[in-house]
Design a protein around this nucleic acid. Structure first.
Lengths: 192, 192, 192, 192
DNA sequence: TATGAATGAGTCTTCATTCAT
DNA sequence: GATGAATGAAGACTCATTCAT
């Protein structure tokens, strides 16, 4: 094909920028946000040390850009979920989707990195909350705000769980919990 | 009183150790694990810079010890929860308890710091999972493994949520979700 | 008009060179010789980064050229002074002239930048001394070498003074001092 | 004597601080304020690179401290001048003193470095003006403010001259100029 | 044991300079 | 010639760690 990179690592600003950004996300996902250094990025991206600061004014900006990139990846999965959701089969479809997400180590780690970063860096909060908020938004259409929120939190917990354990939760278990939250009663009149 | 520090800052190895450890947990909780430096700890603890390495061979060891300390704090709240749990009122009591936990910024941040650290440092995983695993253990007695797990994950999610938002979830909402998970059916024979 | 730039920024080597040089002098005068960087010059001159090295082999050469340019500006004021000097009214005319010079922040800063640079860079000495030497030359015609030198040094001091204070010396004060130096006796026969 | 440096370059905080400061002043005086780098200072002082930041929080602080140190050296010469001044022989004594000062390359360069630094760094102005202001103060006692100022400016100019030329002005020339300024009339009633 | 001075590796960042397009 | 991407050498600064006192 003709549109290959002009020369291996040479003269391709946009490609270079992507390479640096990609290297940054890789490091964040595999080694955590704290391991992000100019040297590590430059080395992994195969560019000169100075190039990292040429494309991103500071290491903070690079980290932020990388996290935003990861957030966008999550946005895409959510968009797919949104498209696939059918009125009567929400629990089933959502469980399958979440299960798939939990099996994707990269996605899980990206999500965790986002939360960990947001914990100490207020500016990143918005980014970290997007995933949860977007899911709530999508589910709220079918289930109402409160059930959507409950499910989103459960999902976040399952993500953490998957990130810390070797094997994530099974799909059946996910479905049962999600179904229960869908069936929940958030406005109990009496003690019943 | 007998349990006063022998002399302010002098000749009390155990007290010194505790002071250092306490300073370390404070820093981790308020500024995040990345902000933990010998200097910061020594300064906050009011001890000499050299003392920190005297009691903890390396900064990693100190961080680990501090996180273990935080994990133990969580263990205590869990022990209290365990003691207060009554067979028929699990949702109610648990919701009240979790709500109290979520209002405790220190506790929430400690939990998040633990998870964030465990994400990149395998050695800390065990520590981070203790909170979830212990809660599951306590609830399993009353609700069975699967419901207990579902609730624990939901609770973890709520903790993250509380850490990233300004105000945590309300108690009523927590109770409704927990109740729903208690009522859930994890062994659906058929499509029902 | 015929002397307009051929095309804004395009195809006008000499205009480009001038733009770069002018930007360099501006930076030196307003921010000091240390603030002179390729990037700053290119940005201020509105040319590409590479152009600065195209016209001036190195940053040192550019700085030197810029300082030479500033020296030339001073030469011009001196030429005007020379033309305006009248035999009997040297003190009066010189004081007025110097006072005008001291009020010109750009001129004062240019002079100071020249001196500061010459202090550490031997190659620039000649440039820095030109101002003083030329003034001496001009005055010597009317007052003799020694009085001319004394007045030039006083004038240099007044320039420094103006550069470091907010308001320069008043014209009357300048005239009195200059007059005194004109009246001075550099060859006292005896103790008198 | 017993109070020699404890060990060559080891364990002597105050000595180390002095060594670093001294190295800094040497560099400023011989190579100019711009040549002051941590590496240069550490190397010249014979200490580790990190030591320079241990004693001076930043390079700016170090530069400022060094310039203050140089200013103090000047203060001392001025104190000596003040003590030696006799009512009837001001020109003579001052000329001898200034001549001695101009022969001291270190002192001259220190003064010039101070002025050069103050040019771009407002915080250092006060420091740079001290020399001039103090001299004016000392002379004003004997000669009044205006004559004192005129002489101080002349002296500053002579200092610059000495810094840029190889040989400073002769003592006789200095005396004649100073005497003329002492004899000057700053309040001419008429054209006379 | 307690202290904090000392060290140097490693981090971010800036810039002069080179050179492919 | 013009452009700006690319490079790597410093520079400032931080900090874990060592060790003399």
């Amino acid at each position: 094909m003709g549109s290959t990179s002009p020369a291996p690592g040479k003269r391709d600003p946009e490609g270079r920028r992507r390479a640096i950004l990609h290297a940054a996300t890789e490091i964040i996902v595999t080694k955590g946000p704290a391991a992000l250094t100019h040297r590590a990025v430059a080395s992994l991206a195969g560019v000169a040390l100075g190039s990292t600061t040429q494309y991103f004014a500071s290491i903070d900006e690079l980290r932020e850009a990388a996290l935003a990139d990861l957030a966008q990846e999550i946005d895409q999965s959510l968009a797919e979920l949104e498209a696939s959701l059918e009125p009567g089969r929400v629990a089933e479809i959502l469980a399958a989707n979440v299960h798939g997400f939990l099996l994707d180590r990269r996605a899980v780690h990206a999500d965790m990195a986002l939360m960990a970063s947001a914990m100490t860096e207020p500016r990143l909060r918005e980014l970290a909350l997007r995933w949860t908020d977007r899911l709530i938004e999508i589910l709220a259409v079918h289930l109402g705000e409160e059930r959507a929120t409950a499910i989103a939190l459960y999902t976040d917990g399952a993500t953490m769980h998957a990130g810390l354990h070797d094997a994530p939760l099974g799909e059946a278990v996910l479905r049962a919990a999600i179904q229960a939250l869908i069936d929940s009663d958030f406005n109990p009149r009496s003690e019943k």
